[in-house]
Structures are given as structure tokens and as C-alpha cells.
Design a protein around this nucleic acid. Structure first.
Length: 401
DNA sequence: TCTGGGGTCCTAGGACCC
DNA sequence: TCTGGGGTCCTAGGACCC
């Protein structure tokens, strides 16, 4: 018995957040993103898309395409707020939700749809869509299928406010005609290679893999089986309720201008280090590995990015220790190149409360110094010591010395 | 003047341990 | 003199997604 998996995707979510705050923006070309030297379009309204503006496009290009473009920075607080409302609304329909990002999630409605007691799933989904809109003014597209992959492809198929059902038997009709680059997992590196092999559509991809052509095998390597499984409806249908723990926290920032001043770059970097350590502490995490990212400036536009990582011993959130390691890593990695962007991240994270036994004694002491547990233990120790001393002196008395 | 910033997952070689 | 093989960690790089 196959499951019923949904993928729900909020349409132009960041733009929608602005429209909700300020309805006069509705119907106008709006792009969300920063206008700085390296700003790009994060997302844009459908009106802006009519001019050729698209996500990922440099802001200067977007402005050139649409001179009336309204550019707004993302309002992260409001985005977070609405994202929470989105998820809590969906939770009314099923508790089995896997949040993928602020604006999309997978939902397993196999059981809850049974309870709904009607046969036509379309109306059930329409109800989710309409009620979400009524409650939050957010628009979404919903994809439905027996696997997460098919649901995801479905939500992408029709926007905005689309509902697309892709059962195994619908794959040929719905997905096969699509461009191969719309296959979730095939991006801008692999797609051109496939085009060269005469593979234009997802259907081409399926049949050429089945024909076992050596060139296709070489290009796709181990992904072949995964692709076939996806298209034959055998890929994962497990919606992970307990979203896996975060694996890394990091940042990368473009310098105000390209620089080869060691001091200037270091200062910029150490500020990022501070911020990430703070974020990490707020999240209650400890790290074991730090990473430095350097992007070299380039006149031709093919920026070279290099990462340097370093294990720093035991899991820790000790600021001094991490900062020292971060500084050391910078000094050993930076070779006076001209730098465009620099980043810092902490990886190999674990939760502090799960980690007490894995912390070194020093870390533990630093962390516990002000905590109630520490004070309590101290108090007990004092009492214990007093008791011990008393017992010792009693014994001495008993033995006559 | 001009191409972000947050992530995840996978691979692969070398070191090291048993 | 012969020179294994499994497991794990560390590090770097790459592809992809939103």
C-alpha cells in the first residue's frame, strides 16, 4: 500500500511577506535581495518575472531588465514568524511533517486522509490550500505522490496555487516531457553534459539509462539507480518528523571591496567568527571542526573558492579556544591572495545537553561555573567535605590522637 | 562598478588503530 | 622475508538546493 505524501511550497514567499505588510505592492514588480556590491535576487514577484527577472540573478542585471523594479531586503523576523504560522497550520492536517526550509515541507497524510472519509483527494488539498490562504494570506503549491520525489516534482509543476497529483502511472505523462534540468537533483553542471549526449527531457534520461549507454553511465555514475528509482516511484517515502539535527552553522560575506590586506581580511573574518560562535551558543551546540572559506577575486568572473578545515579536539563552545583555532587556521591558510569573500563555519555539531560526557573537564567547568547545577554540586561538596572532616576528626579522637 | 549566503550530501585519499 | 583488511577520522573538493 503506497503512502500519500505532500510537498507544500509557498509561492514567492519572501515577496508575499512584503505584500502582506504592504498590500500596495501587490501586482507590482518586486524583487527581494540586497542592493550591495554583490547583491542578487533572492526571489521576485511574477510581475517582475515577466521582465525576465529571476532568482539568483545579480541585482544590477535585474534593474537593467526592469527599471521600475521595487527592491526590498528580506525581513528575516517577519519571514520566521510567517514560516512558523505556515507549519503550525499544516500541522492541523497531519502531525507527520518534515520542514525542509522556511517555505517548504513534506507531509505524510496517509492516515489523516483516511479519516477525512472522502475519496477525492483534490478537495482535501484544495481545503489545505484555501484555509492556509484564509488564515495567513500565504499562497502555496501542493504536489502529491507516493514518494517525496514525486510530491516535490508535483509542487513545482504548477505555480502559484497549483495542485498536482503524480501517481506512478502519471510519471510518463507529466514528468517525461519536462526538461532534464527540472529533475530535482540535476543542476547546472550535469544538465549541460546530458544535453551533449542528446538527453533533453526527463523521458530521454529514463530511456537512455535503460539502454545502458556507456557515455551516459560515465556521466551519471552511481546516480543512475537513484534516478530510475525516483521515476519508477521507489525512492524514499519517509517523512522525518524529528528534523535531523543541524550539521553546521556558518557564514560567508563578500568584502566591501576586493582586498589583499592581511589585517583588513583578518578583522573582517574575526567578526564573522564572533558572530558564528554566538549563534552556535544560542543554538546550544558544541563543535569539533571549524572551516575557513576563501573566494579569490577574479577579473574574468570564474571565482575560485577554497575551503580549509581543522579539527579542534574535543567538542567545545569555548569562545577563546574556537577563536584561537580560527585565527591559526587563517594564518596558515591565507597566502596573500586578493580576496573577494571570506567565510567561517563550525561543523560536526552536537547538542550541549547530549554532550556532557564528551566535553573535556575544562569545558565542563567553564560552562557549568554559573549554572544552578554547579552551585548545587558545590554546596553538596562543601557539605560532604565538612562531613568528611568531621568524621576524620571523630576517628582521630576515637583512636586517641 | 557589477554574480549571495544559508545549507546538505557525497566522494576520495591519507593517517591511524586494531 | 612475507606486507592485510576493516573501521574511523581528517581534510579538501564538488554538486546541488532554496
Amino acid at each position: 500500500m503506497s503512502k500519500i505524501i505532500l510537498h507544500i511550497d509557498l509561492n514567492t514567499f519572501f515577496v508575499r511577506c512584503e505584500e502582506i505588510k504592504n498590500p500596495s505592492l501587490i501586482g507590482k514588480p518586486v524583487a527581494i535581495g540586497n542592493e550591495g556590491r554583490a547583491g542578487i535576487v533572492s526571489t521576485c514577484s511574477y510581475e517582475a518575472r515577466k521582465y525576465g527577472v529571476s532568482s539568483g540573478m545579480p541585482m544590477f542585471q535585474a534593474k537593467a531588465l526592469c527599471k521600475d523594479l521595487i527592491i526590498l531586503p528580506p525581513d528575516s523576523n517577519f519571514i520566521e514568524l510567517l514560516s512558523k504560522e505556515f507549519i503550525s497550520h499544516i500541522r492541523k492536517y497531519s502531525e507527520i511533517i518534515e520542514q525542509i526550509s522556511c517555505d517548504e515541507c513534506y507531509v505524510d497524510i496517509t492516515e489523516s486522509f483516511k479519516k477525512y472519509g472522502r475519496n477525492n483527494i483534490y478537495w482535501y488539498l484544495k481545503d489545505i490550500q484555501n484555509s492556509l490562504y484564509k488564515k495567513t494570506k500565504l499562497k502555496c503549491s501542493i504536489g502529491v505522490g507516493p514518494t517525496k520525489f514525486l510530491a516535490k516534482m508535483g509542487s513545482d509543476y504548477k505555480k502559484p496555487m497549483g495542485i498536482t497529483i503524480i501517481r506512478k502511472k502519471d510519471v510518463k505523462k507529466i514528468l517525461f516531457p519536462l526538461d532534464v534540468n527540472s529533475f530535482y537533483g540535476i543542476g547546472k553542471k550535469t544538465a549541460p553534459k546530458l544535453y551533449k549526449l542528446g538527453i533533453k527531457t526527463i523521458g530521454d534520461l529514463y530511456y537512455k539509462i535503460k539502454l545502458n549507454i556507456p557515455e551516459v553511465n560515465d556521466t551519471l555514475m552511481e546516480s543512475k539507480k537513484y534516478i530510475i528509482d525516483c521515476l519508477e516511484g521507489r525512492s524514499s517515502d519517509v517523512v522525518h518528523v524529528f528534523s535531523d539535527e543541524q550539521k553546521s552553522i556558518g557564514t560567508t560575506r563578500t568584502l566591501l571591496s576586493d582586498s589583499n590586506s592581511r589585517d583588513e581580511i583578518r578583522d573582517f573574518y574575526l567578526k564573522e567568527v564572533d558572530r558564528i560562535i554566538k549563534d552556535m551558543k544560542n543554538e546550544g551546540k558544541l563543535t569539533k571542526t571549524i572551516q575557513l572559506t576563501l573566494k579569490e577575486a577574479s577579473k574574468t568572473g570564474d571565482f575560485k573558492t577554497t575551503t580549509y578545515s581543522k579539527a579542534i579536539g574535543d567538542y567545545t563552545d569555548n569562545e577563546t579556544k574556537i577563536k584561537e583555532a580560527a585565527n591559526k587556521l587563517f594564518e596558515s591558510s591565507y597566502k596573500n591572495q586578493t580576496i573577494r569573500l571570506i567565510g567561517f563555519s563550525v561543523k560536526n555539531l552536537i547538542n550541549r545537553n547530549e554532550a556532557v560526557t564528551q566535553m573535556t573537564f575544562d569545558d565542563y567547568m567553564i560552562h557549568e561555573k554559573e549554572s544552578e547545577t554547579f552551585l548545587l554540586i558545590n554546596e553538596l561538596n562543601r557539605k560532604f567535605n565538612k562531613d568528611v572532616l568531621k568524621r576524620v576528626s571523630d576517628l582521630k579522637k576515637e583512636n586517641g590522637n
